[in-house]
Design a binder for these strands. Structure first.
Length: 397
DNA sequence: AATGCCGGGTT
DNA sequence: AACCCGGCATT
């Protein structure tokens, strides 16, 4: 018995005869390929997004002006009058000279982070004077380089991760580069959460910028500081203590902050011991969980060679090992954000979970695919992608 | 070995 | 563009 016959038998068993029983959908003489097309017809729509997934790298075309967050912000009035007033005041107060070369158009940045450059990069106030100067230099360099590189990296995430009220950040993330076109159904997009949950840990976002986690404004939530040094994860309650810890234990320097060049700031992050932590329990205090909360969407979070001794890397200018292959389609397709310049320092944090590294080939999902579900005997029931040995479009991961 | 699917070839 | 498959990575 040939596969042909098996297919037909299988198809009949499945009982798909809605279209007039007199003419079986699968004639004995129908060539295999023809049948495939017919059967696939009802699911053809599936291949639309499929092909779209292949076009991840066209993100930059989305242009800063057309990105949902930046583009809609002026049209959507801020929700709270206080916020609105705040913006108005700031805009008026700022000696902002319009520059024709402003790559992001008028004021898209003002809306995101009003104020002069330093407003983008909160600096802990408790830092020593020398360290602060040094860090400012580093930050300024990073920010400047960022401005000159990717609007993608800066414009969108800055808006997305902004803590101000406005469009829901995760909604905006759904329109992030890499989330295909605007008509793409979010529910079917495996890379975007369908439920409104914060998309990324804030710290992770800052890795994109090569910044240390900025000292978040804290109202009532308690703040802890966690050492990011590889396999350390020490948590202290004060930034200065953490800086000292890193200086002494990891950097092998003097305990005096005068000796500091601010480098310690790159080795710790802030933990929000607030409501979230109550829910998460102590697990949030352990070194970052590689699997759960962090989607594999980060470009270039490759770690330095694990076997290497703790490197004293310069936060700026660290060249990131970017694989130069094509952008692999599928979930992590913002993988190809191709960070340059300061974003390269995204490689910098010393103790990131290695799972964050972007594999050249995406890990196989655990969803059962057509082959598994229907078996090779009923290949005609597979989605077209599976039949063509492409990434399954029916059972998305 | 089975499975999933990338990359590329053919029609 | 649709279709197919070699070959590789992963399980």
């Amino acid at each position: 018995m040939t596969d042909e016959a098996a297919f037909q038998a299988g198809a009949r068993l499945v009982g798909r005869g809605a279209g007039g029983g007199a003419q079986p959908e699968l004639g004995p003489t129908t060539p295999l390929s023809k049948r495939g097309s017919d059967l696939g017809g009802t699911r053809r729509a599936l291949s639309g997004p499929a092909s779209r997934r292949d076009e991840a790298p066209r993100l930059p075309l989305e242009g800063p002006g057309s990105i949902a967050v930046a583009g809609t912000r002026p049209a959507t009035p801020p929700q709270g009058p206080a916020v609105n007033d705040g913006f108005s005041d700031l805009k008026l107060a700022l000696p902002r000279t319009p520059r024709a070369s402003d790559p992001w158009g008028a004021g898209s940045w003002v809306g995101v982070a009003p104020g002069p450059q330093s407003a983008h990069i909160p600096v802990p106030t408790q830092r020593g004077p020398t360290g602060r100067e040094r860090l400012d230099e580093v930050m300024a360099a990073a920010a400047l380089t960022s401005l000159s590189t990717s609007p993608l990296l800066l414009g969108v995430p800055a808006a997305v991760f902004s803590s101000e009220p406005g469009p829901e950040p995760w909604q905006a993330l759904g329109r992030l580069p890499g989330s295909y076109g605007g008509d793409w159904d979010l529910a079917s997009c495996p890379s975007t959460p369908s439920t409104p949950s914060p998309p990324l840990p804030l710290e992770a976002a800052h890795f994109l910028f090569g910044e240390p986690a900025p000292r978040k404004r804290k109202n009532s939530a308690q703040v802890m500081f966690q050492c990011l040094w590889k396999s350390c994860g020490k948590v202290l309650s004060s930034a200065s203590g953490m800086q000292r810890h890193i200086r002494v234990v990891h950097l092998g320097r003097q305990a005096e902050p005068e000796q500091s060049d601010g480098e310690e700031d790159f080795y710790y992050t802030e933990l929000d011991i607030g409501l979230d932590a109550l829910a998460d329990g102590l697990s949030s205090l352990t070194p970052v969980s590689p699997t759960a909360s962090v989607p594999p969407a980060f470009p270039c979070l490759e770690l330095p060679e694990p076997s290497a001794p703790p490197p004293l890397l310069s936060p700026v200018g660290q060249v990131c090992p970017i694989h130069s292959g094509r952008a692999y389609q599928g979930r992590p397709d913002h993988v190809h954000l191709e960070p340059q310049g300061p974003a390269a320092s995204a490689c910098f944090p010393p103790a990131l979970p290695s799972k964050l590294s972007v594999n050249p080939r995406k890990p196989r999902g655990d969803a059962k695919k057509c082959r598994k579900v229907y078996g090779t005997e009923r290949r005609e029931l597979w989605c077209v992608a599976c039949r063509w040995k492409k990434a399954c479009q029916r059972f998305l991961d």
